[in-house]
Design a protein around this nucleic acid. Structure first.
Lengths: 339, 339
DNA sequence: TTGTAAGCGTTATCAT
DNA sequence: ATGATAACGCTTACAA
């Protein structure tokens, strides 16, 4: 049942005070080299571990950070987290992972919980599709560094690491055009979320640059909760059009998958008669018999950079670049390889 | 910058002491109904939030629990976590997720970090393939409830929620036999981990019960880090045998996937000439063109039950059943549907 | 019923 | 260079 050993225990054994022990342990210069050595040795010998909770109370900040994502069972997010952890781990940070399941209420709850826990920083991939950002202002007001991951909101002085979603939408669409597709549909997410809006804009820009008129009948908005079914539904609707599309640029791999399944069910040949590209480079896009063209967002890299932005920020003096935008990469696979 | 409001602020405003406020807030009977009401009202009005760090320091326990899994980007584990969260959320528990990436050292680090953070409980899907369980004993000695999730070790008085892996191995193998397969190979995990040993045993038992002799040439051990490649390698080796197998029971979906890819590359027809079954019911097993037969472990259910075991345990008086074993279910899909 | 005060483990600010 | 003490926010004997 080994009682926890505190600095008092060390102090008692050495006939000094806890203050001295604390100083010795914290590289405080106001201590003699000899006692420091002595303290360090006995601390190790007694297997002393600082009580982080006490530390957090004292300092008003803990050595943990929170990361809030819609869900962890997406390759993108789990790798984001992995990048974060790898970078933060050496600094002794504990990463608390929270999931919102894309519910705004959960996001608020999670923010509150993290603030309650006095985390040292919060990484957020925003879910709130409402305009209300009060909970985020609360983070700022609490003086807790906030960093947006991938999905961001428009807020002053908040760091962010994102990819250029406009560019991603653009190159995906351009690729489809290069394959000879002309009637390209877009399956997009909630347009109140910036990334989805940007992907849509990039798509439209590419159409425009190729003198293809955007037809709003070719836009379908899915919701994240039933992605695969969303894709199926989209295809079902799109094929009913008098002039159905010959390609789909989906802002989600899962939606793209659903679309492909529905197309195959209807014996539409992919990619010969219909091309489909996805988004996020989920592992299955590569596994599939019919591998799916998709956008790589370099999630591990993103996580690592976000961690660095955070570390920079708490080091203070951070008038440095704290809005990082990465370039997306299109992995071209069978689902769009017509030529 | 809204200063945090404490019980002292409330006390001052009401001209009472912090102790009274505390009592009012905690349903302590030693307080008059009138003051309680007053305190509750002003607390709400002042937007008082208890400082959980202070609470944790005081009580030596926090309202957070930790869950340690090999990695979150596996359907099984992320759903396990989801089940945990759903059940624990209403009780105000914060779930701290840690990943070991199947490294024993990480597991120890994570345990230490969680103990440092004074979590109220730890859910562990064990990674340590060493016999050394000192870090787990430390958990017990710290009086922190420990509950094994899926992968357990043999420890006294530790709760666990698992599936019957022996049974899972058995029914998977029996199914292959029922399909007419006779030379069934098994791709298994680290045999020092109980679940993998059990699956292997179940497999052997099924063979035995069908009068098929186990041939150890048909056993291949993969390591978790390069699962898909492991499957490919296994097939490459197995097909070189003088009498190659006609089926594979894999203890991992990813390994099964690799195996299938390699088989297809070699133009082996599945399921006609070769059946493959996997384990864990990863989403892609269903998505695939050639859907993969797999074992469902009901991870959400498992997480929920684990949460309940935990809640029961901290409620005390827990001489209740704290080792729960769930029954696995085999989803039969194309990869084994010969008949 | 309410107030007083000690204590959880640590560090910062005084003194000495 | 070291010691004493207050403080972080909260709970709980013990007193009143």
């Amino acid at each position: 049942m080994s009682k926890k050993v505190t600095i008092y225990d060390i102090a008692k054994k050495l006939n000094i005070t806890a203050a001295s022990v604390s100083r010795a342990l914290n590289n405080n210069p106001r201590i003699s080299e000899s006692t420091r050595k002595l303290v360090l040795e006995t601390a190790a010998k007694m297997n002393y571990k600082p009580n982080k909770v006490a530390l957090a109370l004292r300092n008003g900040k803990s050595n943990s950070v929170g990361v809030i994502v819609p869900r962890v069972n997406r390759n993108f997010f789990s790798n984001l987290i992995r990048g974060l952890e790898e970078e933060l781990y050496p600094f002794g940070y504990q990463v608390i992972i929270c999931q919102t399941y894309d519910e705004g209420k959960r996001e608020i709850d999670n923010i509150n919980a993290l603030l309650d826990a006095h985390v040292g920083g919060i990484f957020l991939s925003i879910s709130s599709n409402t305009a209300n950002l009060d909970h985020l202002k609360r983070v700022i007001n609490s003086n807790v560094p906030l960093i947006f991951l991938d999905r961001k909101a428009d807020m002053q002085g908040v760091g962010s690491v994102t990819i250029n979603d406009h560019e991603a939408g653009y190159i995906s669409t351009q690729h489809l055009i290069d394959q000879g597709c002309r009637r390209i549909a877009h399956l997009g997410g909630d347009q109140r979320i910036e990334i989805y809006k940007d992907r849509f804009e990039g798509y439209k820009q590419a159409l425009h640059d190729n003198n293809i008129e955007f037809d709003k009948k070719y836009f379908y908005q899915f919701n994240r909760n039933n992605s695969i079914d969303g894709g199926k539904e989209a295809v079902t609707k799109l094929l009913k059009l008098s002039s159905p599309p010959d390609a789909i640029f989906s802002a989600s791999d899962f939606v793209a998958l659903g679309a492909i399944q529905e197309l195959q069910k209807r014996n539409v040949r992919i990619p010969e008669d219909f091309c489909v590209s996805g988004f996020s480079n989920e592992p299955f896009t590569k596994f599939m018999e019919l591998s799916i063209t998709s956008i790589d967002q370099f999630p591990i890299e993103m996580g690592k950079i976000a961690a660095k932005v955070f570390l920079e920020q708490i080091k203070g003096g951070h008038k440095k670049q704290n809005k990082v935008v990465l370039d997306p990469k299109l992995h071209i696979r069978k689902s769009t390889s017509k030529l």
